[in-house]
Design a protein around this nucleic acid. Structure first.
Length: 216
DNA sequence: TACCAGGAGAAAA
DNA sequence: TTTTCTCATGGT
């Protein structure tokens, strides 16, 4: 990808939406829990689930593991896929504690830490990269469905390009900059939410001046 | 009413 | 190995 165009997209998005202050959480562990719960789910639904969970137990791996499955699933109900996510969250907490918690994981170099996270049940590429960037501050670019949609429409990528290829392309174009990646991904999500998907030629799109189709 | 949301894993082909 | 199916609530 052309680094200048990738930068230009960022500048347009930042000018339109301003700083997003991601990730909305009080601790690194809460970021990781939120990353599992937000899989294919609107954040507003995740917030309710996090609140319900925090009303019942302290937001710690040990406390989550002490909850029976039915109780955990019930607390997560509003986030959707609650049975699946209850299992994934328990597996994640197991792996988290086995790895020595936040301290143990933080001691790992980024490639090793990424492999460690990906080895946990329920943690796929995007979730692992959410954790790496927003919980550990590592310079890893998060690719999601919005990223594909926006950049494919801009003609900068093929929609079907694999996750790792896209991640590497963004990281190569921008250089290792965790603060930039943090803001960029948040802005892409903000833009994706704001756009009306029923109007692909949206005249109000902040990217229309750099989009061959007139909007992204 | 139908569609989508800050995906991942299992099952089927 | 690649594609398809399943998981589910809440907002628009």
């Amino acid at each position: 990808m052309d680094p200048e165009r990738v930068r230009a997209v960022y500048e347009h998005l930042f000018a339109a939406y301003g700083p997003q202050h991601w990730w909305p959480a009080d601790s690194a562990f809460e970021v990781m829990v939120g990353a599992v719960l937000t899989q294919n789910t609107a954040w507003t639904n995740v917030e309710r689930a996090l609140q319900r969970l925090a009303e019942r137990i302290p937001l710690r791996a040990e406390s989550i593991l002490e909850l029976p499955h039915a109780e955990l699933a019930d607390a997560l109900r509003s986030a959707g896929y609650f049975n699946v996510k209850a299992r994934r969250l328990r597996s994640f907490c197991d792996g988290y504690l086995e790895a020595g918690g936040l301290e143990g994981l933080s001691a790992l170099a980024t490639p090793h830490l990424r492999r460690q996270l990906l080895g946990m049940h329920g943690v796929g590429p995007e979730t692992a990269d959410d954790m790496l960037l927003y919980a550990f501050g590592r310079p890893v670019f998060v690719v999601d469905a919005y990223t594909r949609r926006v950049f494919a429409r801009l003609g900068l990528i093929e929609h079907e390009t694999g996750y790792e290829t896209l991640r590497a392309a963004f990281e190569d174009a921008l250089g290792p900059d965790a603060d930039l990646f943090n803001e960029y991904h948040a802005l892409i999500v903000r833009h994706g939410k704001a756009r009306c998907r029923k109007r692909p030629d949206c005249p109000g799109c902040c990217l229309r001046s750099i989009c061959p189709a007139g909007g992204a």
